[in-house]
Design a protein around this nucleic acid. Sequence first.
DNA 1: CGACTTTTCGGATGCGGTCCAACAATTCGA
DNA 2: TCGAATTGTTGGACCGCATCCGAAAAGTCG
Lengths: 170, 170
Amino acid sequence: MIAEAASELFLERGYQATSIVDITRRAGVARSSFFNYFGAKADVLWSGLDARLGAVEVVLEDPAMSVTDALLGLMAGFAPDALALAITNAGAMGLQADLERDRALRQARLQRAVATRLRRDGDGVLAAEVDAAALAAAVLAAVWVWADRAAPSASLDAVVAEALVIARRA
Amino acid sequence: MIAEAASELFLERGYQATSIVDITRRAGVARSSFFNYFGAKADVLWSGLDARLGAVEVVLEDPAMSVTDALLGLMAGFAPDALALAITNAGAMGLQADLERDRALRQARLQRAVATRLRRDGDGVLAAEVDAAALAAAVLAAVWVWADRAAPSASLDAVVAEALVIARRA
DNA sequence: CGACTTTTCGGATGCGGTCCAACAATTCGA
DNA sequence: TCGAATTGTTGGACCGCATCCGAAAAGTCG
């Protein structure tokens, strides 16, 4: 209910213009309860992806799993949740800036996980960081390209795969 | 004076534990004055690099200037300012997390500028984003590697150059 | 029905950031 | 030299996010 109320208000008034009090009021719940379910305002949009990022961090620690496979699995079956809606309507929601900011944070988180793995595999600091950045950027860019399409023609998985190919050959 | 007071307090108590009021108190100045000189708390550490990022964004719009040259010029003669100090003493300052966060923001900003340029040069969205991410990560990683060295043996420029070579060949 | 656990709630607290009107200081021109 | 205009400084109000905590409520289970 909280998430629904938040999404509604984001679309109606924009992200910045919607306070947590606004959300909880519409949801008919106390402000405190918001933080029982979300650690922060941004989590309404990002909790889905964040959970997957947490999972991929674990998977990446398994040396048997290739980095590419781990990243492909990361977005497998990613449903068009609040985030996808936010990307599509970023303009209307007035959260271009916030979205860009939070995207950067997630890309960095993924980059860190991949870089740690690459270093474990013997890469130097600079090489690991650069390659990890390319891969992480590929994943995030794929999500954006996919969500930005008016008609979600191809599946997200396909776009991610395409992006990873570019990142690997680069 | 404000910057000095801030740096002192960051080293003494840590970044998070230092409020803006603390800084202005030590600097013997009103809280309001802090925001006359810095747009935000983090700017104490990042204003130097941010200024250079602003410059490189302009340079990158000039098609005559190659991307590599623009990035090399970005960090040319970068002095060991508050940021370098913060990186070196990140642990003592307890700002590992904050530093990582703000680093991600700067890397993203640089990535955006480079990606825009690459797209103008005809690259596709995914390729531009991936390549730009590699280059941006190379620059930021170089700064970290350089600042992290106990003895700043090599110049920052050299490290950046090395990182860019890795990013380009990648 | 009663004991225990989990949610929910309200409210206090702290901090970052914005805005503004009043006041001080400095500059500069008549 | 004096006065005006610009610039810098200040205090304070205001808002929103986030954290913390004790208490009340709701739900669970023997």
